[in-house]
Design a binder for these strands. Structure first.
Lengths: 166, 166
DNA sequence: CGCAATTGCTTCAGTGACTGAACTATGTTG
DNA sequence: CAACATAGTTCAGTCACTGAAGCAATTGCG
């Protein structure tokens, strides 16, 4: 996303937004680079990462925030490359589950390792700084009534982050 | 960007990354929604916001992190809608400067107002929380040697954020 | 000065991510 | 069983964006 440099009603708010965008740009660039390094596009990499365990395609569409038809396309490409296969869902014969092949699991491992190794923010902060940043983000996200926050995965917190009121 | 929910070597790092992605998703959604509310696409809105003062097209490409040819396309659409015009650059007759029309300036005003009014993080934190978040982000970004941070606009800080060493 | 290399923008063809509608097959409900 | 909902697929199309080719103006070097 582009830099935003404007006269803003609130200069502190401006800087926060700018820096969050910058943080995001860095993370995104990192992710893109890691994906490319193992020969995947960004959505392919997301899909592989998501596949720690078999997932129905509709569920995957939810995780990727896209339409089911797009998951079909991504799955096609990853299946063709031999990183996953479709298997029938035991509970619903309409549904298919995406399952990583052996090659897919190895790929996922490499992906995770590289992702973590170079992650910009993690490597830049010491333990105190990390804890501080994290608690701020928790505060921001738990008190925010804006609906986009609600997408935060429930599994993200360790319980210290109060649930978002509905 | 999709949620990332994985077994991570460092659970705290995982949560930070997840929350930063979530923060980004919220900001992005907000931006997109605001742009749509005034009838612009995201890149059009970025361009209008960037045009506080006339900009050469090449400079704009730099700000938008895209190729000059793409700026041509965006400028075409905004010119057609009457929000900006191309004027010759006085210092270089090859170059053109993008200038907001009166309509464009009004549009920019509405855009900024709406952007600020609903910005998720800003509205969710109180003054202390904001200051804390900001200082963390400054620390993260000033100590990070990762190149993506370097894109941070120089104007963002008030001087309290030391320059990134090259 | 004069010619070559460079720079600013445009044009155009193409790509990758993604949506939405129509369709098939299966599942659910009354 | 009929009617409807749901899972995934197919396909056509959109949107953001790139990269190469080209024109015009500018800069630099002999």
């Amino acid at each position: 996303m582009a830099e935003i440099r404007i006269e803003w009603p609130d200069p502190e708010g401006q800087e926060i937004v700018e820096r969050l965008f910058a943080a995001d740009a860095a993370l995104r660039a990192h992710f893109e680079q890691v994906a490319a390094a193992v020969g995947l596009t960004v959505p392919q990499a997301h899909t592989v990462i998501q596949l720690q365990e078999p997932q129905r395609m509709g569920t995957m569409a939810g995780h990727l925030h896209c339409e089911p038809s797009h998951v079909t396309a991504i799955a096609d490409s990853l299946e063709e490359s031999g990183f996953l296969r479709r298997e029938p869902d035991p509970d619903d014969r309409r549904a298919k589950r995406l399952v990583l092949t052996e090659a897919g699991q190895k790929l996922r491992g490499r992906l995770l390792k590289r992702l973590f190794d170079g992650a910009p923010i993690i490597s830049a902060l010491d333990a105190d700084q990390r804890a501080g940043l994290l608690s701020m983000l928790r505060m921001a996200q738990s008190s925010d009534r804006h609906q986009a926050w609600r997408r935060l995965p429930a599994a993200a917190g360790d319980g210290s982050c109060p649930p978002v009121p509905s």
